Simulated assay, not measured.
Amino acid sequence: MRPAQADRLRAFVDKEARAAGFDAVAIASAERAPSRAAELRHFLNEGRHGTMQWMEETAERRAHPRDLWPEARSVIMLAMNYGPEDNPLAILEHRSRAAISVYARNRDYHDVVKGRLKQVAGKLAARAGAEVKVFVDTAPVMEKPLAREAGLGWQGKHTNLVSREFGSWLFLGSIFTTAELAPDAPERDHCGSCRACLDICPTDAFPAPYQLDARRCISYLTIEHKGPIPREFRAAMGNRIYGCDDCLAVCPWNKFAREAAETKLRAREDLNAPPLADLLTLDDAAFRAFFSGSPIKRIGRDRFVRNALIAAGNSGDPALAGACEVLAGDPSALVRGAAVWALERLLDAERFAVLDARLRPREKDAEVLAEWGARS
């Protein structure tokens, strides 16, 4: 492709990306992108992916763009700002209400971003006669290193992408294409000596700067982890029931981030600090209805109520004990176990002993029985 044609095609991509609602667009060379195989293998060998088996299964394709699609020549990285209206850490002081990660308070961003990627990719294919493939973060693409390579930002010490324009509040998507587009310059690291994101982590999930142990991360524990929350992390979770914004929210670069436009990803009002009392009453049908179109729906009712019960146990609010007692008889062992822990925290020894005498003899699940026995 001649330089003039390439310039016009790049201008076309920029224009269409902005028209589709993306706030930033940059290009990396698929061929010259550095391989991430060594660092990915170290992460997996250390077991830091926890139970996310899919990371092992896709490791071969994830390490380099051309391992995923050998014909790719360019990777167009696109970003959408989802900066919050208010300080997302303020809710942590209101222990009887639920803290839901900013990104999950509206429609499922996978659907929003993917739909807009397809718009841009379709127009690029028609214009350039090139093949295209679109990916959001459910695909085996290391989006954050590619975004850094393309110049959208850099990976901060919390391992998330940081932008000089948008701080830590960006959704990422990518378009792989056979079109040859001139790559942008990579962004350099601007974290300096700052370690705010490392120091605020409630569960010490960063073994070192730029390294994450997902097994200790509240986002992993509340979303990806399917079993009981390990006891060592429960108190530190506070009222965070879906994800954790702490390391993102304290990033000093957020001062440059604008609030997300209303036409893009404005938070649902009923997901800004909902009362735990309401969430604890959700059965499967009510859960599905309430979270229709939300990414939260993906984890299912039982995991979600498990998280809400941990928050209830941390609330110090005895008014929540009644709902927790009901859930101690839930059909789900995962829910029952979390309910026992919450009751242990909310009730005095005498009241808890009465429940123990009534409910423990009926219990058959070993993990739930262990929860009943933990106070003994």
Rank of each mutant, 00 (worst) to 15 (best):
W372K: 07
V102R: 09
S332D: 09
R116L: 00
Q53W: 14
R301L: 05
D348Y: 04
L78A: 04
R351G: 01
S219Y: 05
G192Q: 07
R95K: 12
P331K: 15
M237Y: 10
Y103V: 01
E56S: 13
F233M: 15
D317V: 02
A37C: 13
A196E: 07
R301A: 07
L271F: 03
P202I: 13
L181H: 11
S376A: 14
V120Q: 08
K15M: 07
A150S: 05
D184C: 05
M77D: 00
A19V: 05
A98W: 11
R48W: 12
C251K: 02
D278W: 10
K114T: 10
L282I: 11
A353D: 11
I91A: 12
E56P: 02
R2L: 07
D204W: 14
A185S: 03
V112L: 11
N81H: 01
C194N: 02
R95W: 06
G243W: 11
G151E: 01
V132W: 09
A185I: 04
P318L: 07
I218D: 07
F43H: 15
Y220C: 11
P207A: 08
P295A: 05
H64L: 15
E224G: 02
F12R: 05
I296K: 12
G322M: 05
P145E: 04
P140R: 03
L146I: 02
E269G: 02
L320C: 13
A205P: 07
A308R: 13
R301M: 13
